[in-house]
Design a protein around this nucleic acid. Structure first.
Lengths: 337, 337
DNA sequence: ATATTTTACTTAAACGTTTAAGTAGTGAGT
DNA sequence: ACTCACTACTTAAACGTTTAAGTAAAATAT
């Protein structure tokens, strides 16, 4: 068995103390160690292929240089992309990202947070799931820095980077209205999460602004745990009601993917038989015969800002929270008519 | 600032030694510590919300319980899925997965490996990129356990879990031949990686087995770094040659996605104008008008086996390597005619 | 020539665990 | 009564770093 090379090994070979080796290797020019000894140490370190043990460094410094990222659903390309961006941004600040997917499940989220707290992560970036309020409050109590993304809890003061969901939903609903649709259904997750409510509020107020009464039967909610079937059922309900809708607003890309499959199964054509708008895109849409009008979130900005805020807070803990509401843009394609 | 709770804090409150606290908290029933003291310590630990510092545990034990996963391209759903499976499997063995994407770039791969070696990961699961042989050899030299997945280097003895790429490619090519295609093109990455060569060999030998001479002009290679354009060019070349092909075998899903887009642009219809088979699926294919015949890899099995082999090697370091060549299956759909 | 500063190192403590080894004190066995 | 074996703890060392504090020798100043 090859034991790993430590400062001790170098020290022994160079016949100096461990501290000397450490000084040579960590302080550059002005280590306070003489030229000859320095060179000797460096040479031996290179020969032995010395790698500092970051675990020991972390223990000593109290900093792990690890950021915990908890996304709601890693199979969703939205989160997959954001994870990637955050990883890249974190690396620029010399942080490694460890992440997990809560799958919209508060228990799993709690397990992940605990796991990572034990691993002494320096901070978190979290897309919190429903029912995870306490976990967030606990982080605050423990003084562990974190930034929420995509969603946040308005009742809990914290850093967050989200988009203006209300505004985006309002805009996209307006787009449907402008193209002549007044019977608009909405498919959402059955969730108390604020961003979901905001999307629904945007939809509702856009209708009301045009003097259209909101029909709660047209706001359909599906369970994350039973997505595929639920979407199928709800989309059918919208389309087979006494007065069927002429347009559907899918509040997430995953909902849309299964919604479009349902529409295909029912032999309806977008946009002639039914108009469609979606919150977020998906690569799969590229192959859909009709380009889909959708909301595009500024992923790069979200990731960059989240990391910036977090790293800042890690380095200079303050009581002031950063609350960012970024603008999302409406990408107009051919799916509304 | 809330300092974190350590054994010391509990010990002080309970008026016992640190060791006593450790014994109570880590050895269950037979800690050798009396009932009353045990209860007292446990109670205080709970009150203070004590969390063992895994960094300290790692330093002491020499084990980090972290597995490094390096995939070739995390934006590819094949790797995204496998990452997820590996994460889940690892958790069952009490390991945390830290991962990065090399983006098929040997330098990035090297950086990632170094980063993770410094972090004292207990082992690696790697989908190695072209030119990363030395990194792999270095891991061997340092006695760091690892398992290669998806690809491996035949010239380097190591653990690996791959599929039988030759067989799969042979089968899928045969499928094209059986449906009446004798002019078959192939789109591959320009890569020396063994699995890619094996796929090409499968294709070639399937043709030869039917007495068809392999035409090297029909084996097109594209650069990973210039994927979209290259695919477009090469697919066009195949289709506008003096004797155009009637079928194309895409050796990865990403190649197929852009290949199908090209086919759409050229106003050709699958399978009437052109037959298509693909190595690996993609969610996007669900929206393609023609269900695509493809090779399906046993992702779950690959992930499970990789973790099993790795964990095994971590716990009982042996010189014997596990080399797994799993079977992939051909999923027959409607894209061949 | 002597005091003072500077240089070039070493010692030792600390981070939070785990665990082998040590130490009282108790109870049983003879 | 005295040994022996338990029980219930504590002490101390170790994992690999970093760094404040210490020390001895050399260089400079007076």
């Amino acid at each position: 068995m090859n034991k790993k090379v430590s400062l001790k090994d170098i020290a022994k070979r160079a016949q100096v103390s461990i501290a000397t080796v450490s000084y040579v290797l960590t302080k550059g020019e002005n280590s306070g160690i003489g030229y000859e000894v320095s060179e000797k140490v460096k040479k031996i370190a290179a020969e032995l292929n010395y790698r500092p043990n970051q675990i020991a460094q972390s223990l000593r410094s109290g900093k792990s240089y690890i950021i915990g990222l908890i996304v709601a659903d890693i199979s969703n390309p939205f989160f997959a992309n954001i994870a990637r961006i955050i990883e890249d941004e974190a690396k620029k600040h010399n942080y490694t990202v460890v992440f997990g997917s809560s799958d919209e499940n508060a228990t799993k989220s709690s397990d992940l947070i605990n796991l990572l707290v034990n691993r002494q992560v320096d901070g978190f970036i979290i897309a919190p799931t429903e029912g995870s309020q306490e976990q967030i409050i606990n982080l605050k109590k423990q003084n562990i820095p974190f930034v929420l993304i995509d969603r946040h809890f308005p009742e809990i003061e914290s850093n967050y980077v989200t988009i203006n969901n209300y505004k985006a939903a309002f805009d996209v609903t307006n787009r449907l209205l402008d193209t002549g649709n007044s019977d608009i259904g909405l498919i959402a997750y059955s969730s108390d999460l604020h961003h979901m409510k905001e999307r629904i509020r945007g939809y509702s107020e856009a209708l009301e602004a045009k003097g259209i009464k909101v029909d709660n039967n047209r706001i359909k909610k599906v369970a994350f745990s039973n997505l595929i079937e639920d979407v199928y059922i709800k989309v059918r309900e919208l389309l087979s009601a006494p007065k069927p809708v002429t347009a559907i607003f899918f509040t997430t890309n995953t909902l849309a993917i299964h919604g479009l499959k349902t529409i295909d199964k029912l032999n309806l054509k977008v946009p002639n038989d039914i108009s469609v708008v979606v919150f977020d895109a998906a690569e799969a849409f590229d192959f859909y015969y009709c380009p889909i009008t959708h909301i595009k979130q500024p992923l790069l900005k979200i990731g960059k800002q989240a990391i910036d805020i977090l790293v800042n807070q890690i380095n200079t803990p303050e009581k002031k929270y950063s609350k960012l509401n970024l603008k999302a843009i409406l990408v107009e394609k051919d799916s509304c008519k």
